[in-house]
């Protein structure tokens, strides 16, 4: 009972802390001139530098989806349905979610470690001492960069994923190019495309915000920084899954 109470207290503590940080972050984002320069560096690192790994993951996921669905559906339903499955899967789930998961490992962990190190080495305190707001200097540029770069990355992942799905189907399944294209167009709903991009922006904000929140709460030297990095990845992944489930309901409501 005591453990449950402690868990609830801890959850409420983190929820309140995250809410306060979110409020300050949103307020800071209203003044783009102050963080524009810092955001550019973060966005380059999160976006342009992540393109190769995002392309590889998207290509593999698209190809695997087409092959797997092909093996499952060959002989039972029209073969062109593979085009529909690949398009819907990539646009609504694989594109945004896999790209975000890649960025949790690549960006979320880095932000957690970076800010954690700054906290344990008292660099954050130093910022405060010279009159700089740590949230404006550290959190806002990262969160803004996450919101900015995730949708373009997901758009690239969608394009590559569907292309790889088409190529994979051509090479391994008894399907023609026109059949695949017919399938992609037949059950395509444009809301799926826009929804995937909206999801990407939410995921970008989530990954960076959680990385910042966990990083700013680091304590205990090098060991604490290591723990912070792990926490940033775990919490970021769980939060992504949570948003994915919640946003799926919204897709159903508006799509």
């Amino acid at each position: 009972m005591a453990a449950i109470g402690a868990g609830v207290t801890l959850t409420l503590y983190h929820a309140a802390g995250a809410a306060v940080l979110a409020f300050h972050t949103l307020r800071g984002m209203l003044r783009p001139r102050r963080y524009y320069q810092l955001m550019l560096a973060q966005a380059f690192d999160m976006g342009v530098a992540s393109i190769p790994v995002v392309v590889v993951v998207a290509a593999l996921s698209g190809a695997v989806t087409s092959q797997q669905s092909g093996y499952q559906f060959t002989g039972t339903v029209p073969i062109w349905i593979i085009g529909s499955i690949v398009t819907a899967s990539v646009l609504t789930e694989l594109g945004p979610l896999l790209t975000a998961l890649v960025l949790v490992g690549r960006v979320g962990a880095r932000i957690g470690a970076e800010l954690g190190t700054m906290v344990v080495t008292e660099q954050v305190d130093a910022l405060r001492a010279v009159g700089r707001d740590p949230i404006e200097q550290l959190v806002v540029p990262r969160v803004a960069a996450g919101i900015l770069v995730l949708p373009p990355l997901v758009a690239i992942a969608d394009f590559v994923g569907i292309g790889a799905g088409w190529l994979g189907a051509m090479l391994t399944l008894p399907i023609t190019s026109s059949e695949f294209i017919y399938g992609t167009r037949t059950y395509f709903h444009d809301f799926a495309l826009w929804f995937g991009l909206i999801k990407a922006a939410v995921f970008g904000a989530t990954i960076t915000f959680i990385g910042c929140y966990v990083g700013l709460r680091a304590s205990g030297g090098a060991e604490g920084v290591g723990r912070t990095t792990t926490n940033a990845v775990v919490a970021g992944t769980v939060a992504l899954m949570f948003w994915d489930a919640v946003l799926a309901r919204l897709l159903k409501a508006f799509g």
């Binding site: 949708p151 373009p152 990355l153 758009a155 690239i156 969608d158 394009f159 495309l193």
Partner: peptide, 9 residues
């Protein structure tokens, strides 16, 4: 990157 992704979309 933004222009390329917009064109792709």
């Amino acid at each position: 990157m933004v222009i390329a992704s917009t064109v792709l979309v």
